[in-house]
């Protein structure tokens, strides 16, 4: 028992940070994924998210183990390799009130699971979808993944000669409504983006470069800490202002955009490159391509569309969770069956 007299800081629903923590990580010391877990804990704690409504999803791989290391008191479903989107889709249809948080990796998303990822994006399922992207398969000891950059080198000297799948560009092309890239080492940016994702209605894709200290952190890798720090090209600064706080910051006009999110929160993007419009699909794709040509990792909020319907609205689902509808709502009356039987006579 604590002997100190200072009580821990509580969030707006009266919970301490500890309530948002998970089990002890089994990932390598220094793994980018651990930093992402910490940011998730902070984002959910700071916004005072009620954990009863949180559902964590993951596939297979180092990234997909991580949901055990944050938000420990919440429900989680660790499925099969590359198929987390389907599991999450089903669960969120079953209970539309759930706050879905998916964690995947680059192998899980861009190789074995790319089919499911593509259709998840098309459906705009209301889910935060984090790709912990290190360009390499960790649990199987260091093979390239489909997000490895052209010319990037493995520890054993093998050079990648296939072009990478850019998860952000792919998502924008497919009609994603919230597309961001970040770096596990950029605490401030990642935290703001996570909070914004929590306020977005629809799928929020967060492609987070998260270096693998065991297999992809050496000279010649384009996803090492050193390379990413040197080539991180933030697309301005990201500030999140929750719905329950007032906007009290002044920003230089012309380079700042104020995006109102679904729940009334605001995303302020400052110091943007001149005329960058994150609601312009073509501009977003062009900017990504230009950064790629320069060997840079473009980070920040790349694209957003706050006007699209999410999958729940598209299916016109009733307000109550389908999972717990009473029998009289889901079993038509006997007269209905009588009528149906009569139609077959």
């Amino acid at each position: 028992m604590s002997t100190t007299t200072t009580s821990p800081k509580l969030n707006r629903i009266g919970l301490p940070l500890a309530a948002y923590k998970g089990g002890k990580t089994t990932l390598c010391a220094g793994c980018g994924h651990n930093a992402i877990s910490e940011r998730i804990i902070e984002a959910f704690f700071e916004l005072g998210v009620d954990l009863q409504w949180v559902a964590k999803f993951s596939g297979i791989g180092c990234s997909s183990k991580s949901p055990a290391y944050f938000l420990g008191g919440t429900h989680a479903f660790n499925g099969v390799h590359g198929r987390m989107p389907a599991v999450a889709t089903g669960a969120l249809l079953a209970n539309r009130r759930l706050i879905g948080l998916g964690v995947s990796g680059d192998g899980d998303t861009a190789s074995i699971g790319i089919g499911q990822f593509v259709h998840l994006v098309r459906r705009n399922v209301p889910l935060i979808y984090i790709v912990e992207n290190n360009g390499v398969y960790g649990l199987t000891k260091g093979q390239f993944s489909a997000t490895a950059d052209l010319g990037s080198m493995l520890r054993n000297g093998v050079v990648n000669d296939l072009p990478p799948i850019d998860i952000c560009a792919l998502s924008i092309e497919l009609g994603a409504t919230f597309v961001a890239r970040s770096f596990s080492g950029d605490k401030k940016q990642l935290l703001a983006l996570l909070k914004a994702a929590l306020s977005h209605r629809g799928l929020a894709v967060l492609d987070v470069i998260s270096p693998c200290v065991a297999f992809n952190d050496h000279e010649g890798s384009t996803k090492s800490y050193k390379y990413v720090k040197e080539h991180d090209e933030p697309l301005g600064d990201v500030h999140f202002i929750p719905s329950y706080e007032e906007i009290s910051v002044d920003y230089e006009p012309g380079t700042t955009r104020d995006i109102r999110l679904h729940d009334g929160s605001h995303l302020l993007l400052s110091k943007l490159p001149e005329d960058y419009d994150p609601t312009d699909k073509m501009a977003a794709l062009r900017t990504l391509e230009e950064a790629r040509k320069k060997g840079e990792h473009l980070t920040g909020l790349i694209y957003i569309n706050t006007n699209s319907k999410d999958f729940i609205e598209l299916l016109n689902l009733t307000d109550e969770p389908l999972a717990t509808l009473p029998v009289e709502k889901v079993r038509p009356p006997k007269e209905a069956l009588d009528e149906i039987n009569e139609s077959f006579r």
Binding site: G79, P85, V87, A91, L93, A94, D319, L322
Partner: peptide
Amino acid sequence: TGKATFAVVQAEDELAALGMVLGAGWAGA
């Protein structure tokens, strides 16, 4: 309410079809 007490999804393949069913079943549907 005019709203649906069901969700029907034409999945991208049978893997996804059963994946969604398991996700929904796990969530109590």
